[in-house]
Amino acid sequence: MDYTTYSEIVKKNAPKKHMVRNGFLAFISGGLMGIAAQALIDLGTNVLNLETPEAMSFSAIVVVFFAAVLTMFGWYNNLAQLVGAGLFIPTTGFANSMTSAAIEGKFEGPIYGVGTRMFALAGSVITYGVFSAVICCVIRYILSFMGVAL
């Protein structure tokens, strides 16, 4: 059988994508994470008397904690299967990628198992975050000599 006929058959039998359902679930889940994060910020400013930047850090830490605990109990990935980007875009995704990799890395020991594998999935976020941040800051630095205030 030639390749063209085969690939037509494959295309025809590809399962239907549930893009609307997935988009809806991601939107709702992401939105709820936003609300939870804001509630935590308000908790920080009103109850713990933190300044807004510190309250935001507090909010992030609690979100990380929540994601790590769910990962440790084995519940996170079932939830993530349902909501997709609704969990991998918030900080929960970052925390889960590090926690799940670290937990599984334990079999290869603390150095090459846990220590190295922890960053296997989250590493690129840190890498490109820092790399692009440096470039952005340097561009701003150069612009500051042309009158654009820092």
Partner: peptide
């Protein structure tokens, strides 16, 4: 999973295929 794909507890939304 850990060799070919991702850690078993990683929250990736697996495709239907």
């Amino acid at each position: 999973e850990r060799q070919f794909r991702y850690p078993t507890e990683y929250g990736i939304e697996k495709k239907d295929t």
